[in-house]
Every structure is written in C-alpha cells, then in structure tokens.
Simulated scan of single mutants.
Amino acid sequence: MAERETRTEASRLTARGMVTRDRILRAAADLMHVKGVAATTLDHVRAASATSKSQLYRHFPDKELLVSQVIELQATELIERQRQQLERLNSLRGLERWRDALVQRNALRGGAYGCPLGSLASELVDGDDEVRLAFAGHFGEWLGLLVRGLTRMRDSGTLRPDADPDKLATSLMAALQGGYLLAQTSRDVTPMKVALDMAIDHVKLYAVKSRSGESVL
C-alpha cells in the first residue's frame, strides 16, 4: 500500500519536483551507504541535498519512507548492473570478468563501505519482517541471475551435468558478501578478490575437460 501511494504521489510531481526528489533520494543513499542508516538524519540529508525542510518533508515526510525508497534505489541500480553482466554469462572467463568488475568497482573507494545492498540489509533486516522479505526478494533476484548463468554453462557443456547451479551460485554470493565485509574492515579489496577466486575455483572443479586436459573456457 505504501509503495503504491509513493508511486501515485511521484506521478503527480512536476519535472522540477522529480529532480528535487531524485536529488534528495540520491543524497540519502550516499549518506546511508557511507555513514549507515542509523547515523544518517533527515537534517544530514537536507544539507547534503541542498533542500529546504519544506522540500524534504514534502517528498519524504518521515525517515521510514526515505529508507524504504533508498533500499529500492540501491537494489534497482545494483541488480541492473548485475543483469548487464550476468544475462550474458556463459563461460568461466565470463565469470572471471564478473569478478573483476565487482572488485574494480569496490576498489574505487578502497574497499570501504561494503556492498550497497548488503550494508543496508545488515542494519535493517532484524527490525522489520516486511523489510527482511524485501531484501530477500532483491538478493533472490541477484542470485537468480547467477543461477541462470551457471545453468547455461552446464547446458552448453562448459560444466559437467552433475554441477548444481543453485549451490554454486549460493557459494559465489556468500563469497562475494563475505569478501565485501573483509574489504570494508581492511580497506583493501584483496580479501574480496581472494574469496571470489576461491569460489570460482570451486566452480572450475565442475568444468568439462578438453582432450588436452584443460578446462573448457
């Protein structure tokens, strides 16, 4: 219901109002990613977005609504980036390119702040079952992209018939999220790359071997 009301309200905004709303939302997303949800106040958001109190409260009358919209923004943009890579995944080299893109993106901030979606989840999932289910849906969509990519690899003969795409995808996602956390605490993406390398090495155990004994890439 709240989401439907938010969409209805957004549809009534002028072009200028949409720009202001987007500026507020993106400022909030950046602050919550860097500072955390609990440490981010509406006053912080107002200052970072260069908006007045009346503008802020017109679009987001309370922090709960703002947080829910930040979750949707982060999830939508992250999953779209993942979709662009994983919808074409059909090889071990493609899996390595996926790893490289994630590590390189995280290296832009020296490994700080963690996964945009995972960091929010770690703060919020225990407080509200509806929020937990929303995160479960977002991570499920992300995981599904990996599962489908690995399934294509199995069906095309890159992976053996006994490879389990669901289990392999879960191991990759677990390595990724653990790697994000280790990179965040050390301010170094090396542990993230190591974790993903180990998970990909596990996938390679199921690679079909060519006559020369090398894995089919």
Rank of each mutant, 00 (worst) to 15 (best):
A169K: 02
V189Y: 00
R88K: 13
G137F: 03
A175N: 14
L78M: 14
P165R: 02
Y180K: 11
R132P: 00
L124R: 10
R81W: 11
P116N: 11
L92G: 10
G118H: 10
L120E: 05
R99A: 11
L120H: 06
L196V: 01
L176A: 13
L146A: 07
D164L: 06
L108Y: 03
N106A: 08
G110M: 02
L181P: 01
N106Q: 14
T158P: 01
R152V: 00
G178W: 10
E130W: 03
N106M: 09
E123N: 07
L92V: 15
M153S: 05
Q177L: 15
V103F: 02
R152D: 00
V147W: 05
L92F: 09
L133Q: 15
E96C: 07
A174W: 08
Q177M: 13
D129C: 04
L145V: 00
S119F: 01
Q184H: 15
R132F: 13
E87L: 06
F139W: 13
L182E: 13
L146E: 01
E87W: 05
P161N: 07
M173D: 09
D162E: 15
L120R: 01
G111K: 09
S91A: 11
G127M: 02
C115D: 10
L95Q: 04
L143A: 07
S119N: 14
L78Y: 15
P165I: 09
T151D: 08
I79W: 06
M192S: 03
L102Q: 12
G178E: 09
Y180Q: 14
T151N: 05
L73K: 09
R99M: 13
K167Q: 11
R109H: 11
E141M: 07
L168D: 04
G111M: 05
T170L: 11
L124V: 09
A121I: 04
L92D: 08
V125L: 12
D128K: 12
V147Q: 15
E123S: 02
D197R: 03
W98V: 10
L95H: 04
D188H: 07
D164I: 08
A101C: 03
